[in-house]
């Protein structure tokens, strides 16, 4: 095949495909909304707009019992092997493995769904643009639709975009089993034992704490601005207010942190939180880790040799 192939389809096919994608997206959004509503009815005072990282740390599953260091190495390694694949089919397989991981870790699917939706805007850009802008190569298959035949959809572009979407979803699905199955301090301790400087681990924990404090602060300031009649418009005035708002957020955060840090030092803080973390390595840790890495390697081999990419 040296020439590009072309084919024309009725416009209705394209409309149907777009409609189907839109419906799926809306359905996911709706599911998430109802799920988080149900959550909120039970817990009045906690604000769930920022998801906690380690919400399900108390559970019990294969992933919960896995040593944190092994889990980090195995799933990070697996993620990189997944990203190295090229075909949409291997991306689909990786997605199924990700789903399996969520299932095995006995985690609620709603939180993984939230992660997928967070990426949907960025990924939709690829799905929309890539088929139209992929450069036609010999052997490519071009689709046109009656009525808009000046637009040529390159199927190779579509398959590239689908591979990207699949890989992104596969890695995103792994995030919940990786992070939610141990408390964050424990995960950070695992990172430190793997060679991340202790300073950095402390910073992750501190910054994670501050995020919630500052969000609260930002929200309170925004409420105050609203009460005083501030309206967001496209104007210089709005930008000036936002600039001052950001500046005030910095000033308040610095002052508050300074007080907190003084208090921490007064209580004997010397650069680390004394949190006893016990690590024990068993045969199952090695086995589980080897299993994931092997699966990743198999996937990559399947992608490169079987599909011939």
């Amino acid at each position: 095949m040296s020439e590009t192939q072309a084919m024309q389809l009725p416009l209705i096919y394209l409309l149907l495909a777009v409609f189907l994608c839109g419906t799926l997206w809306w359905l996911a959004l709706w599911t998430l909304k109802t799920a988080s509503h149900r959550h909120q009815e039970g817990q009045q005072e906690r604000d769930w707009s920022v998801p906690l990282i380690d919400s399900a740390a108390g559970g019990d599953s294969l992933f919960h019992r896995w040593d944190v260091r092994f889990k980090l190495v195995a799933l990070l390694g697996f993620a990189f092997l997944v990203v190295a694949t090229r075909s949409p089919w291997s991306a689909l397989l990786a997605m199924l493995l990700g789903l399996l991981a969520v299932r095995l870790a006995r985690l609620p699917f709603a939180r993984s769904l939230r992660r997928l939706l967070a990426m949907s805007g960025f990924l939709a850009m690829f799905l929309l643009i890539m088929p139209l802008t992929a450069v036609p190569h010999p052997g490519d298959f071009l689709l046109t639709f009656s009525g808009i035949d000046f637009l040529r959809f390159n199927l190779r572009g579509l398959s590239l975009a689908l591979a990207i979407v699949g890989k992104a979803c596969a890695v995103a699905l792994l995030m919940e089993p990786l992070l939610a199955t141990a408390s964050l301090p424990r995960t950070v301790e695992g990172l430190t034992r793997l060679g991340v400087p202790e300073k950095v681990g402390q910073m992750i924990l501190l910054a994670h704490r501050y995020i919630f404090v500052f969000l609260e602060e930002a929200r309170r300031m925004a409420t105050g601005m609203q009460v005083r009649g501030f309206q967001r418009r496209t104007s210089m005035q709005t930008l000036r207010v936002m600039g001052n708002y950001l500046g005030m957020l910095f000033v308040r955060s610095f002052e508050r942190t300074h007080r907190v840090y003084d208090a921490m030092q007064a209580r004997g803080y010397q650069g680390r939180f004394p949190a006893p973390a016990y690590f024990s390595v068993g045969k199952s840790d090695w086995l589980h880790t080897a299993c994931w890495l092997l699966l990743g390697l198999l996937l990559l081999c399947f992608d490169r040799f079987w599909l011939g990419n």
């Binding site: 501050y210 955060s253 942190t257």
Partner: peptide, 29 residues
Amino acid sequence: VKQTANEDLPKVAVVTASFFVSSLIHVPL
């Protein structure tokens, strides 16, 4: 990390958190 002194870490953490929070602040356009 080498350029950052130990006692400055909390302040770096503040800016880290503010950087995070500011990505949630939307400006109308």
